[in-house]
């Protein structure tokens, strides 16, 4: 894990409220694994105070850079979106546990919702480049065509790609989870998902019913990012002191089977 000041080298709007930010940082570029995140300080001042966690979307070790996908949801992300190339930010990372790549045999199914696509682009890229070729089928859902941020970056590294929009402006019409049953019916070795809580809960439910292993990347309001403050927890099925696990340190990738999805429904955090 590194703590350092990094330079923003490129920034591009990729959706109505989504921006792709590229930072110069050889350490994260070389060490980050799919599913890991960086904890970014958006201002040197003290308001907004806390860092913001972002999944790494892609790395370019040759260039020494990494990219994150930022959706503007508040003042911190607004400041990031408004920043100029050349600006410097303090970053901690890579943090958290990556996706387990040596999962069970069989096709890999990715389910992405909105900006949840970011870690799955990194994962699909790694699977695509890996010597042990896995057949990767991706489902990517969003509200409208414009919200399908970076869909080309995902489709380019998958063997099959299905876009789903709620308004039918692109791809299939409906919710992304409406199209998961047929993917599971075709057989799948493992499902990886990232997106809104409700989507993840439904993905987890379907995977459990089909007895397919499922791993999800979760987000939560975060304090330290290194496991000390116990602020970013999510509820698991365990009882007692292990019930609440830290997204920053125990996650952000979790086996969907350990999560208490019922308790997650109570609106316990972003998404």
């Amino acid at each position: 894990m590194h703590a350092q000041t990094v330079r923003l080298i490129h920034l591009k709007q990729v959706g109505p409220d989504c921006h792709l930010l590229k930072f110069d940082c050889p350490e994260v570029a070389n060490q980050a694994r799919p599913g890991q995140f960086v904890h970014l300080r958006v201002t040197a001042g003290c308001d907004p105070l806390l860092r913001r966690p972002f999944s790494v979307m892609r790395t370019n070790p040759a260039e020494g850079s990494f990219e994150v996908l930022v959706r503007v949801v508040g003042r911190g992300t607004e400041m990031l979106a408004q920043s100029q190339p050349g600006s410097e930010f303090h970053v901690l990372g890579p943090l958290g546990n990556p996706f387990e790549l040596s999962g069970p045999e069989g096709d890999v199914v990715l389910v992405a919702g909105g900006v949840g696509v970011a870690p799955l682009i990194f994962l699909a890229t790694a699977l695509h480049e890996s010597e042990r070729h896995r057949y990767v089928r991706a489902l990517f859902g969003a509200g409208t065509e414009d919200d399908l941020c970076c869909w080309l970056e995902l489709s380019g590294v998958c063997d099959e790609f299905t876009a789903v929009t709620e308004d039918g402006s692109a791809g299939e019409t409906g919710l992304v989870t409406d199209f998961l049953p047929e993917q599971l019916d075709r057989g799948a070795g493992c499902v990886y998902a990232c997106g809104p809580r409700a989507m993840l809960a439904e993905v987890a439910r379907q995977c459990q019913a089909a007895a397919v292993p499922c791993f999800v990347s979760l987000e939560q309001w975060m304090g330290c990012g290194v496991g000390a403050c116990l602020g970013c927890v999510i509820p698991t099925r365990a009882s007692g002191v292990g019930r609440y696990q830290r997204v920053c340190k125990d996650g952000p990738v979790f086996d969907a089977a350990v999560i208490d999805w019922e308790a997650m429904r109570g609106g316990c955090g972003p998404g």
């Binding site: 003290c46 308001d47 907004p48 105070l49 806390l50 939560q220 309001w221 975060m222 304090g223 403050c229 116990l230 602020g231 970013c232 927890v233 999510i234 509820p235 009882s239 007692g240 002191v241 292990g242 019930r243 609440y244 308790a263 109570g266 316990c268 955090g269």
Partner: peptide
Amino acid sequence: REGNPPPRICETPAGMLN
């Protein structure tokens, strides 16, 4: 102690609640 259910923290102007 298992602690409180989430959300446990919230950012506020130049501060945070926990």
